[in-house]
Computed example of a mutant assay.
Amino acid sequence: MTDGQIKSVDIQIAPEDLKTLKSSGYKLCFAKKVNDSYNVVWQSAAGYLSDNTFSWQPLYQIFGSNTFQGNVTVHAATNQVAVGLGDEVTLDRDGLLGNASSGGPVTSITLNNDYGPIHPGLSAYSTDINGRGTTTPIYVAEAPIVSGKDVLTPVEAVQVWFEQDVVTSTMFSTARSNAVEIDLTEVNSATRLYSAGQWSKPKNSLLYTDPATIVTLIAALTAAVVIQDLVSKITSKLTGVYKDVKVEVTSLGGSTVKIEYREQPGLTGARSAQTRMLLLNPTAVDQLAGFALESFAQLGVGYVTLNASTA
Rank of each mutant, 00 (worst) to 15 (best):
G4Y: 05
Q5G: 03
Q5I: 05
I6Q: 15
K7R: 15
V9F: 13
A14S: 15
P15N: 10
P15K: 14
P15E: 12
E16Y: 08
L18M: 14
G25D: 13
D36L: 04
W42Y: 06
Q43I: 15
S44K: 01
A45N: 13
A46H: 08
A46E: 14
G47K: 02
Y48I: 10
D51W: 13
Y60A: 02
Q61F: 13
F68N: 02
Q69P: 02
G70V: 02
G70E: 09
V81N: 11
A82R: 07
G86L: 01
G86D: 00
D87M: 03
E88A: 03
E88V: 00
L96D: 09
N99Y: 06
G103M: 07
N113W: 11
P120H: 13
Y125N: 11
S126M: 07
N130H: 09
N130T: 10
G131S: 06
R132H: 08
T134H: 08
T135K: 03
Y139F: 05
A141E: 14
V146Q: 12
K149R: 14
L152T: 03
L152I: 03
T153S: 14
T153V: 12
P154G: 13
V155G: 12
E156G: 10
V160N: 01
F162H: 02
E163Q: 05
D165N: 12
F172P: 00
S173P: 01
R176K: 02
R176T: 00
S177Y: 03
N178Q: 03
A179Y: 00
V180H: 00
I182D: 15
T185C: 05
E186R: 10
V187D: 04
W199V: 04
L207I: 07
T216Q: 12
L217T: 11
L221R: 05
T222K: 06
D229Y: 07
V241A: 10
K243D: 12
L252W: 08
V257Y: 15
R271S: 07
R271F: 03
S272A: 14
T275P: 09
M277C: 04
L278V: 01
L278G: 02
L278M: 05
L279Q: 06
N281V: 04
A289M: 06
L293R: 12
E294I: 08
S295V: 00
F296V: 02
F296L: 01
A297N: 08
V304R: 01
L306T: 05
A308H: 01
S309Y: 06
